[in-house]
């Protein structure tokens, strides 16, 4: 394709959009809505996934043993737990270790533990179990119930299940809403391009008589669609970046508790979201324009 031809297509595409400004705006807003929803659901789903991963790494099962077991009993129990399927690692934590850990966690406030030492330590002997994946929690819990001497089992099951469910719901809802908005966007773009085609039907007619190929006639309209798609995708992304950064920092400062979990960084999110949204916007534009020119090309 000649550079002059490409220039011609771009000029014609832009002039088509300008002549038809109101519909162009409507199409861009439709694409923006679609891309915004897509970006929002991606941000949420991606963060939930990220949090879930952190929990998989950190949350295992804690098993507490009552009374004062001998070191032989502790060894036996450790090896029995290690034999359970999906258990990656078992760590014994003595009451002394637990106390030290607790003091370290509280940092500056460790004063409240003053007076507690090995002789009057209220903490139990425990095992910290690491699992291969979060989904295996239930089967491991069942197996643990069959072991004698276990006083108490603590695990993050409800939290992880909740997050897993939320992330699934978000994924499905996001895709559904995106699909509906996508169809609406394509329909609005189709209408816009159709008006542009009708505005130029004399021109198209002459083009056909002097021997322009169908593709030559199509290109300016495809470019119109692509421009709508690109603009409709870039605006919400540019607005989205600072909003995401603000929301994350607000969450950290209002809920200090969640400092233990990490949200995804702005860069990590948008390096994926940017090309994804751009591609999706362009796709919407192309589908909209190609479907609306098809029937107007017959002369």
């Amino acid at each position: 394709m000649r550079p002059s031809t490409i220039k011609y297509f771009l000029r014609e595409g832009l002039s088509g959009l300008k002549k038809n400004l109101l519909m162009t705006m409507a199409s861009i807003v439709a694409v923006m809505a679609c891309i915004s929803i897509m970006s929002f659901s991606y941000c949420v789903a991606s963060n939930l996934q990220h949090i879930l991963q952190q929990m998989e790494d950190s949350i295992g099962i804690s098993v507490f043993i009552g009374g004062n077991p001998t070191s032989q009993e502790i060894e036996d129990m450790k090896s029995r737990i290690s034999e359970i399927d999906h258990v990656l690692d078992v760590q014994y934590i003595s009451p002394g270790d637990a106390l030290e850990e607790l003091k370290a966690d509280w940092g500056a406030d460790e004063d409240i533990f003053v007076g507690l030492d090995d002789s009057n330590n209220p903490l139990s002997h425990s095992f910290q179990i690491t699992l291969d994946k979060i989904e295996s929690q239930n089967s491991v819990l069942d197996a643990l119930k069959g072991i004698d001497g276990i006083d108490n089992i603590r695990h993050g099951q409800t939290e992880t299940e909740l997050i897993m469910k939320a992330s699934r719901v978000f994924n499905i809802a996001g895709v559904l809403v995106m699909l509906i908005l996508g169809i609406i966007s394509v329909m609005i773009i189709m209408n816009t391009i159709r008006i542009s085609v009708v505005n130029r039907r004399v021109e198209i007619n002459i083009m056909k008589y002097v021997g322009a190929t169908d593709w030559f006639i199509r290109w300016p309209f495809i470019i119109e669609g692509v421009i709508i798609g690109v603009v409709g995708a870039i605006i919400p992304l540019l607005i989205g970046i600072p909003i995401y950064a603000k929301v994350i920092s607000a969450l950290y400062s209002y809920f200090p508790v969640i400092k233990i979990i990490q949200f995804r960084l702005v860069g990590d999110i948008f390096i994926v979201l940017f090309p994804m949204a751009l591609l999706f916007g362009i796709l919407l534009g192309i589908i909209g324009s190609v479907t609306s020119i098809r029937k107007h090309l017959r002369v």
Binding site: S4, V202, I206, F216
Partner: peptide
């Protein structure tokens, strides 16, 4: 069947442009 928004020159050049004749 002339294009009203193009000059005489552009109307004629249009026929060459659409078959991708060099400038």
């Amino acid at each position: 069947r002339l294009l009203p928004n193009k000059t005489v020159y552009e109307n004629v050049a249009f026929a060459m442009r659409v078959i991708e004749a060099p400038n």
